Amino acid sequence: MGRLKSMPSRLGALPSRVKAMPKVADRFYQSPEWRAYRDQHRQWTKARQGGVWCCVCGSTHRLILDHREERKDGGADLPAFDKMDWYCTAHHNAKTAEARARRARGGR
């Protein structure tokens, strides 16, 4: 009697029936208060370390100022300067995805 060969799954080829929610920018990040805070933080960082770069990889391109404790997790809107970090886009997206996954797991 011959061996049964495993059949490849066809489920991976099915299209998703649930569409991703469109990204909606938080209005807070368009506010004059946030823009002024970000500019002040950039000047503070330049004075403190001589420039502004990603705290993970050192890149100086497309930097985003990010809360260490996310606003959705109870962080302040405009915390002390030492409670914020600059990230390049790639590392900011990774950090945000990790925080989102942590919230989805119930904070673990």
Rank of each mutant, 00 (worst) to 15 (best):
M1W: 09
M1Y: 08
G2F: 10
S6T: 14
P8D: 08
P8M: 05
P8E: 10
S9N: 12
L11P: 01
L11Q: 12
G12L: 08
G12H: 07
A13D: 15
A13K: 13
P15A: 09
P15Y: 04
A20H: 13
A20T: 15
M21K: 15
M21S: 15
M21G: 06
P22V: 13
V24C: 07
D26S: 05
F28H: 08
Q30A: 14
Q30F: 14
Q30I: 01
S31C: 06
S31E: 06
P32C: 01
E33W: 00
R35S: 08
Y37T: 00
R38I: 03
R38C: 05
D39L: 05
D39R: 07
H41A: 04
H41N: 02
H41Y: 02
H41C: 06
R42V: 08
R42Q: 07
R42G: 01
Q43P: 01
W44N: 02
T45E: 09
K46I: 15
K46V: 15
Q49M: 06
Q49C: 06
V52E: 00
W53A: 10
C54L: 01
C54A: 05
C54G: 01
C55L: 02
V56F: 00
V56E: 09
C57N: 07
T60K: 11
T60F: 03
T60V: 12
R62Q: 09
L63S: 02
I64Q: 06
I64A: 02
L65T: 04
L65N: 04
D66S: 08
H67F: 05
E69V: 14
R71E: 02
K72I: 07
G75W: 03
G75N: 04
A76M: 08
D77C: 03
P79K: 00
A80G: 07
D82Y: 04
D82M: 02
M84F: 03
M84T: 12
W86V: 01
Y87L: 15
Y87G: 01
C88I: 03
T89H: 12
A90I: 11
H91N: 13
H92C: 05
H92F: 06
N93H: 13
A94V: 13
A94S: 12
K95M: 08
T96M: 06
T96S: 15
E98N: 11
A99N: 11
R100S: 15
A101M: 12
R102P: 03
R103Y: 11
R103M: 10
R103S: 11
A104T: 14
G106C: 11
G106I: 13
G106M: 12
G107Q: 13
G107H: 10
